[in-house]
Simulated assay, not measured.
Amino acid sequence: MSTSNLALFKENMKLRTKIFAHDCVKFSLDLPKNTLGNHIHGQLIRCSTSVAANYRASCVAQSIPMIISKLSISIEEADESEFWLEFAVDEKLAIKERTEKMFQEAHEIASILIKSRQTLQKR
């Protein structure tokens, strides 16, 4: 990948992960205000915003091992976001149609970042 293509990829992923975080936060604000709803609310906000924050950190990391570390955290947090979205539906706190786009986006982000990590690990 050329330097300009890499820069464009990074900027697109920064935007994509930030939009994902915003969507999850907005969804979380609509969860019921009860013990379980509050718990999912906090967990989903934490992990979805961590996807974006750690991806951004990977873009300015000083070494390949640090980039891999930050990407790994983003992957784990994207997977956790999937879990909390699925759990909200399982517990009937949300309808599946409301979470499908975010669930798919979390999965796609994780898949992209896994491939990026694999590429870096070959270096």
Rank of each mutant, 00 (worst) to 15 (best):
S2E: 15
L6G: 10
L6A: 13
A7M: 06
A7C: 01
A7L: 15
L8R: 04
L8F: 12
L8C: 12
N12F: 06
N12K: 11
M13V: 02
M13C: 02
K14Q: 15
K14Y: 10
L15M: 08
R16D: 13
R16N: 14
K18T: 15
I19F: 05
I19M: 08
F20M: 06
A21L: 11
A21C: 10
H22F: 14
D23S: 13
V25C: 11
V25Q: 02
V25P: 02
V25N: 01
S28N: 09
L29M: 15
L29Y: 07
L29Q: 10
P32L: 00
P32E: 00
K33L: 01
T35R: 05
L36R: 01
G37R: 05
H39Q: 13
I40S: 04
H41T: 00
H41K: 11
H41D: 02
L44T: 07
L44Y: 05
I45L: 00
I45V: 14
R46N: 08
R46C: 06
V51P: 10
A52G: 10
A52L: 13
A53L: 13
N54C: 03
Y55G: 04
Y55M: 05
A57M: 07
S58F: 09
S58E: 09
V60Q: 09
A61S: 15
A61D: 15
Q62Y: 12
Q62W: 11
Q62A: 14
P65L: 11
I67C: 10
K70D: 06
K70T: 06
K70N: 10
L71N: 01
E76N: 12
E77T: 05
A78F: 12
D79E: 13
D79H: 07
S81R: 00
F83D: 03
F83G: 01
W84K: 01
L85E: 03
E86W: 03
F87K: 06
V89Y: 07
V89N: 12
V89G: 07
D90W: 00
L93Q: 04
L93M: 13
A94L: 09
A94P: 01
K96Y: 13
K96P: 00
T99R: 00
T99E: 00
E100W: 01
K101W: 01
M102Q: 08
M102K: 05
M102S: 09
E108Y: 09
I109W: 09
I109D: 06
I112H: 03
I112Y: 06
I112R: 02
K115P: 03
K115Q: 10
S116M: 14
Q118D: 14
T119S: 15
L120M: 10
Q121H: 03
K122A: 15
R123A: 04
